[in-house]
Structures are given as structure tokens and as C-alpha cells.
């Protein structure tokens, strides 16, 4: 099976399950609201009944921002608010955190929320793959949670396994290589040396993170398709599968990744055009944000769906070639 066929049929399946997108979006919004309310309250308190409200409606006021951050400096997560996370800044900020593991430095409040969301999505990953692998391929809340419950225990163990690898990356590799870069930088003739090393390190980090992520995606897929019980075995087999079909697994993964970037670019180009000076436009901007989030969820589902197709397609090809080989031993011998 080629990557484009896997992608095409994968997209078709995702598009058949629009309710699933919206369900995941609603969960995302609800979890985000848990901290958005305190932030809103902090903003309201800060702006109060001052004329700053007028100024901030029309644009941005550095002096207020500076005071706001200072006033809420002890609240942790509120100080993460900054103009540099607006629009495309969100993407850069989060990808940055992903590569460097900087989110471990976030306030405990955010970390707890992130952990809850991860746990929820371990449950949802079972639901998503279960639905996609079921003969009807149709999303229902009951079916979704039923699949989620079925695989939660196994996926949680996969999460622990992958966590060990990510832990090694973030707590050993990142500090170790940062140290090396700093040491080399300390004796380098120009700042370009550590910067170029930093770029190389980031590229390698991206590659490893994506590779690990992909392996564990296939481990999940194998678990659902073959009803596997041992997660170590599934991971080992997933590694074998990925490396045996390296071009296709990587090609598919990165192609979908590029789709995600395209969505981000479109969002980033349009978002600043919505001047948020009236309630209608603020609402419009919010809707546009949710459209982007929906696209993001769509990308995540497409990863699962297309990788599931690729896996099943390649397994089928393997079976066919095995059958063919056993049917014509002379050919196999040749």
C-alpha cells in the first residue's frame, strides 16, 4: 500500500466521523476553560473599570501588560500570558516547549491540567482507533467509550513505556546535549557555532520525538488490530514494522505533519486580519480559533486513520506475498 492511498482512505474515514471531531473539540474547550476562567477573572480584575478597557479594546497597551504580569506574578500560569503566544505565537511557543521540554517548567496548575488531558486522550486514543477499526467505522459516544475502556489499560502501559523514552530524551539527552553545546559555545569563535549546533540538535530532537511518537502510534494500532496484550511485544513489533517500512511510515507521518503546518499558516495569515474591536469580531476571532483547533484535531485523527490503513494494507500485502510464496515454492526458492 502506498502512502497516498493510505492517506486518502484515512481522510475519508475521518471525514465520515465528524461527530468525533466535534466531541474532541468540546472536550478540548472544556478542559481549556478550567484555566481560562481564572485568567478571565484576573484580566477583569486588572482592567476593572479603568479607561484601560477602552485602550485594550482598540489595541494593546504595554504598560498595562507589564502591570498585569507584575500583579499576578505569583499565580504561575497567568504569567504565561504574553503577546508572544498570540496567533502563530501559540504554535511556536508550544513546538518550542515540545522540543526543549520547557513545559516541565510551567506552573503546577498547567502541568496538572496537561496531565489530565493526556490521561483523557489515552482513553480517547482507544476510542478513536476502536471506532476506525470497527466494521461500521462510525462514531457513537457509547462505542467510543467502550473501545476507550477496552484499550485504556493497555494504552496506559504504552504511555508508561513511551514515557520512559521521552523521559530519557528530556531529562538526560536535552541537558546533556545542551551542556555540550554550551561547552563548545564557550570556546567557539562566534555565536554561530552554538546556534548551528542548536539547530542540528533541534532537528535531531524533532526526528527522534516524531520517530518515537510514530512507533507508539503503530504499537497502539497493532494492539487494536491484533488485540495484543503484551505492550512490550507490541512496541517491539511496532519498531520492526516502522524500520521495515521506513520510507512509507515516515513519508506518511511527515506528509500529514505538513498538512498540520499548512493549517497553521492559513490560521496565522487570517487571524491578525480580524481586528477585535467589537464583540462581533471578537466572536469571529474565537470561531476562527475553533476552526483551526478542529483542523488540528482532524490532523490528529488523520494520523491514526491513515497509519491504521498503512499498517493494515502492508500486513495484507505481507500475507498475500506469503500465501503466494507458499503456493509457488519454485518462485519462492528462486
Amino acid at each position: 500500500m502506498g502512502i497516498f492511498k493510505a492517506l486518502r482512505t484515512g481522510i475519508k474515514r475521518v471525514n465520515k466521523n465528524k461527530k468525533m471531531w466535534f466531541f474532541l473539540l468540546v472536550v478540548n474547550i472544556l478542559v481549556a476553560l478550567v484555566l481560562t476562567f481564572p485568567l478571565y477573572s484576573a484580566l477583569k480584575t486588572s482592567i476593572g473599570d479603568s479607561l484601560m478597557g477602552e485602550r485594550l479594546t482598540k489595541g494593546f497597551d504595554y504598560r498595562w501588560y507589564d502591570e498585569f504580569r507584575y500583579k499576578f506574578r505569583d499565580t504561575g500560569f497567568i504569567t504565561l500570558w504574553s503577546p508572544t503566544i498570540v496567533g502563530s505565537g501559540a504554535f511556536f511557543s508550544n513546538v518550542d516547549s515540545l522540543v526543549t521540554g520547557r513545559f516541565f517548567q510551567f506552573s503546577p496548575t498547567i502541568l496538572i491540567l496537561m496531565a489530565v488531558y493526556v490521561l483523557l486522550n489515552i482513553l480517547f486514543a482507544g476510542g478513536i482507533l476502536g471506532v476506525f477499526h470497527s466494521p461500521e467505522e462510525k462514531f457513537t459516544i457509547k462505542g467510543f467509550f467502550s473501545f476507550g475502556g477496552t484499550y485504556f489499560n493497555r494504552f496506559f502501559r504504552l504511555f508508561i513505556l513511551s514515557g520512559v523514552l521521552y523521559g530519557v530524551l528530556y531529562f538526560l539527552a536535552v541537558p546533556y546535549f545542551s551542556g555540550i553545546i554550551n561547552r563548545i559555545g564557550g570556546t567557539a569563535a562566534s555565536e554561530r557555532v552554538p546556534m548551528v549546533l542548536g539547530i542540528i540538535f533541534a532537528v535531531v530532537m524533532f526526528f527522534i520525538l516524531f520517530l518515537v511518537n510514530m512507533i507508539f502510534d503503530y504499537a497502539k494500532i497493532r494492539t487494536v488490530v491484533g488485540d495484543g496484550r503484551s505492550m512490550i511485544v507490541q512496541t517491539g513489533k511496532a519498531i520492526g514494522f516502522v524500520f521495515k517500512n521506513f520510507g512509507r511510515t515516515m513519508g506518511l507521518y511527515y506528509f500529514i505533519g505538513v498538512l498540520g503546518i499548512v493549517f497553521m499558516v492559513i490560521y496565522s495569515v487570517v487571524e491578525p486580519q480580524i481586528s477585535q474591536v467589537t464583540p462581533l469580531f471578537v466572536l469571529l476571532a474565537f470561531v476562527w480559533q475553533q476552526v483551526y483547533m478542529l483542523c488540528r484535531i482532524w490532523v490528529r485523527l488523520t494520523f491514526f486513520s491513515s497509519q491504521l490503513n498503512l499498517f493494515m494494507g502492508l500486513q495484507k500485502e505481507k500475507k498475500v506475498s506469503k500465501t503466494a510464496a507458499s503456493a509457488s515454492p519454485s518462485l519462492a526458492e528462486s
Binding site: T36, L39, Y40, M52, L56, I85, A90, F91, N94, L98
Partner: peptide, 21 residues
């Protein structure tokens, strides 16, 4: 309005962060 405006913007970052997770 500004409190909503800036809270929504922050919420988007948080939504994005959660999705990244």
C-alpha cells in the same frame, strides 16, 4: 470586551498546548 478578547487569545494558546500534549 478586552477581558474576553485577551482571555480567548490565551485560551487558544492553552487549547493548542493541550493538543500538543
Amino acid at each position: 470586551l478586552p477581558a474576553y478578547k485577551w482571555a480567548f487569545r490565551w485560551m487558544f494558546w492553552l487549547q493548542h498546548l493541550l493538543e500538543t500534549c
